[in-house]
Design a protein around this nucleic acid. Structure first.
Length: 427
RNA sequence: GGAGGAGUGGCAGAGCGGUUGAAUGCACCGGUCUUGAAAACCGGCAUGGGUCACACCAUCGGGGGUUCGAAUCCCUCCUCCUCCGCCA
């Protein structure tokens, strides 16, 4: 959520940002509407405050009058107070409506994109920020996509998942399951080495939490919802982990705060079926290691670079060809100011698969989180950032496709310590 | 799930209808003293709205109510503690 003061002071910038995002033209007016409502809000608040001030003053006098036995005068003032109360009630009512309308509109405004974000409508307008420098791997004609390899090597089973739960819930088994566990440990260890504190958070969150990181109300349909207890299954560890710092005021010396955590992620992905989503390309449950940082506003873009370096390092250790995209306005997440996507080349499918998204939210999340730091006498909003480091399912897909050989699937060196084997042979 | 108790500032802990945004202690930050430190003493020390700055307004777990006036009374929800039940 954008800060009102920022919005008021940067109307043109905000509107320009909407344009970059290809936000529907006719809805740009909500910016002006929000400011008009804010003017009204201030006006009403001032009126209400002075009415309440009168009431408080009278009440004090009444107390004194009662004490000194001047009942008649007290009675008269009491009369006056009930008039004030009536007036205050109607002002309060309007104030409440004004605030909630303003709030609703504010929730509809996405973050202002960073200056470097290219305008665009969809993923086709994303900018290749760093391409894969060398040749892409070319596999033999007999090379198979990961879903076929999964059957040959008994690594995971989609149909079994369908039986147990529904489509999009893979069951990993044998060396496939072990490979998952190895990757999780590897990613967590690397993050801890890089100075992140390991967190193991709850997998379900309440409404306040989902709202604070921006999943509600924007992405309500994306989350699994447990109605009976009013809880949401997390779509990413970002949600519970970032919320650790909800309603917190930090000192400058606390920066940067670096947190990491592995969780399963649950996403409804309603309506997506077909070739694009075969196998592990898109599933309802997958494992992901997330890195989160909370940083001073002056340093958050350096931090974004640092986090990208971390992700790139992981992919290099896994020996996977990757490229980095700078998301265009139209593809940029609602809450993000700048996002870089990491895509891994899946050689058998001959497709790039998104395996990480590293973003700076600036103050957009911290405004909802009420996550501040002390800057001299006043408090200011901190910047929040996060990135996947990394998302498993697609890494597995690329890994087994790219590393298939006539003898079996080769495990990259960096992982062998974790898997306990260097080759997956036919079952 | 059943019965009882409790939720106040960073922490501890008063207040239980009226100058209480909130005593006191600890922690923290300035200052005096000291060669330096400690101790002692003096001062400061919640968040948000509002203002050039004051004033002023709101907030004592959340929401609602009673009252001229609520941290204090009532209702409701949440959370925590104790006992019983169930249980990985």
């Amino acid at each position: 959520m954008l800060e009102l003061n920022y919005l008021r002071a940067n109307v043109e910038r905000v509107k320009k940002g909407l344009k970059v995002r290809s936000f529907p033209e006719q809805e740009h007016a909500i910016v002006d509407r929000i400011i008009a409502l804010d003017d009204r809000r201030k006006e009403l608040q001032t009126t209400l405050d002075s009415l309440l001030a009168d009431r408080n003053a009278f009440s004090k006098e009444i107390g004194a009058l009662f004490k000194s036995g001047q009942r008649d005068e007290a009675e008269a003032k009491r009369q006056r107070v009930s008039e004030i109360k009536e007036e205050a009630a109607s002002v309060e009512e309007e104030l409440k409506n004004t605030k909630s309308e303003q709030q609703e509109l504010l929730y509809q405004l996405p973050n202002v994109p960073h200056e470097s974000v290219p305008a665009g409508n969809s993923d086709e307008d994303n900018e290749v920020y760093q391409d894969w420098g060398s040749e892409l791997p070319v596999l033999a004609d007999a090379a198979k996509p990961h879903w076929e390899l999964a059957a040959d090597y008994r690594l995971f089973d989609m149909e079994l998942g369908t039986k147990i739960t529904g489509s999009g819930f893979p069951v990993y088994r044998g060396k496939g399951a072990r490979l998952q566990r190895a990757l999780i440990s590897f990613f967590l260890d690397e993050a801890v080495k890089a100075g992140y504190e390991e967190i193991l958070p709850p997998l379900m969150v309440n409404e306040d939490t989902a709202r604070a990181t921006g999943q509600l109300p924007d992405k309500e349909g994306q989350m699994y919802y447990i109605e009976k207890d009013n809880l949401y299954m997390i779509p990413t560890a970002e949600v519970p982990i970032t919320n650790i710092y909800r309603d917190v005021i930090l000192e400058e010396k606390d920066f940067p705060i670096k947190l990491t955590g592995h969780t399963p992620c649950f996403r409804r992905e309603a309506g997506s079926y077909g070739a694009e989503v075969r196998g592990l390309n898109r599933v309802h449950q997958f494992d992901k290691i997330e890195i989160v940082q909370i940083q001073h506003p002056d340093k958050s873009y350096d931090t974004l670079q640092e986090m990208m370096q971390h992700v790139a390092g992981l992919l290099e250790k896994l020996e996977l060809p990757y490229r980095i995209l700078r998301l265009c306005g139209g593809d940029l997440g609602f809450t993000s100011a700048l996002t870089f996507d990491f895509e891994v080349y899946s050689a058998a499918q001959q497709r790039w698969l998104e395996v990480s998204s590293v973003s700076n939210f600036e103050t957009f999340q911290s405004n909802r989180l009420k996550l501040r730091y002390r800057d001299g006498k006043q408090t200011r909003l901190a910047h929040t950032l996060n990135g996947s480091a990394l998302a498993l399912a697609r890494i597995v897909a690329a890994l087994i496709e790219n590393n298939q050989t006539p003898n079996g699937i080769v495990i990259p060196k960096a992982l062998q310590h974790y898997t306990g084997f260097d080759l997956i042979e036919k079952a």
